[in-house]
Design a protein around this nucleic acid. Structure first.
Lengths: 170, 170
DNA sequence: TGAAAATGATTGCCTAGGCAACCATTGTCT
DNA sequence: AGACAATGGTTGCCTAGGCAATCATTTTCA
């Protein structure tokens, strides 16, 4: 295991993972949303349809985790997509808690329809990168994602000294 | 200029820039917010203080662009930070529209105080990467950011055929 | 087994952030 | 110069999304 790369003394955000990844996101999102601005589908809705299409998610809870959104918010968005006939809900036989989300043919068509402008955007943005560099970047991010998925969530430090007896977390 | 890397036919999100960068963000944010959950400072507020500290931003408008947030929202957040004595506003002499945001000593202290847990987090996440790989990733993202900053925003296609006379954009 | 914990889905409520309107100031173009 | 566009900041209003409570179901484990 190599020694830590980042240091708290001499921290500079322009060379930090958090700053750079966040900046990429903050610059990308407005472009993506602008592409969808004149459509009757929001960027978030499209991502959801694509997630279902690609099997990355197949339930409401999957989408919530995937989008890092609240489960309630996703329920309401799914309501909307269902109302428009882009997907349907189907109670699972194996686990009767879960409701599977199934794209309708229209849903698949709408998802596919919006792929080209997004692909064009990324081709423009990466047009000064070699194929090897793009591949390198995708690979490194994929590995980073695997590590992030494995990272346990931070626990809040207890405010008072903890006694032997375990305290209710409230 | 190399030929386009991404293609709309055979699109797979797990090998797409948009999906991967978004996923990194969606996995990272909850961890960062968890670190701040028991503090009396939000992650967004900390980012703002750091942006001011590092000279990445020095006005409310800078912060709004930087965070990809609404200017109004930033005004209110700055109100809060000012009320807590972490920064002060100072009307610029050169351009009397702008209000410079100046960190107070307490503001600087609070910003610095929260650096270590974030740095630790990123060192844990990247502990299976070599220094060269981390550097490579940071470099590629930096170049990507430069291209994103240069990319012009998407214009909505006009709904009707455009006449010679330029139309008001409303 | 069966009690407690975990998970999925949904709803009501509330807040952070988006939108639009506004004013002040500066930059641009003729 | 002076008209008009662009920019910075602020406010009121509204909505998307977060939080918490609830119920149904499943999993865990003593």
């Amino acid at each position: 295991m190599p020694k830590p790369y980042f240091r708290a003394d001499n921290f500079h955000c322009r060379q930090s993972m958090g700053y750079l990844t966040r900046r990429v996101q903050n610059l990308t999102t407005p472009h993506a949303e602008a592409i969808f601005a004149d459509q009757d589908l929001s960027f978030t809705q499209w991502i959801s349809l694509m997630g279902l299409r690609e099997g990355v998610a197949e339930t409401s809870a999957d989408l919530a985790r995937h989008l890092n959104h609240d489960a309630g918010a996703v329920t309401r968005m799914v309501d909307e997509l269902e109302k428009r006939g882009l997907l349907r809900r189907e109670r699972s036989k194996e686990d009767r808690r879960v409701v599977k989300l199934i794209l309708t043919p229209q849903g698949k068509a709408v998802a596919r329809m919006h792929v080209p402008p997004i692909v064009d955007f990324w081709n423009r943005v990466t047009n000064e990168f070699s194929a090897a560099e793009i591949k390198q970047l995708l690979d490194l991010m994929t590995r980073l994602i695997a590590r992030l998925e494995a990272e346990p969530m931070h626990e809040a430090a207890p405010k008072t000294k903890t006694k032997e007896k375990k305290r209710a977390v409230k």
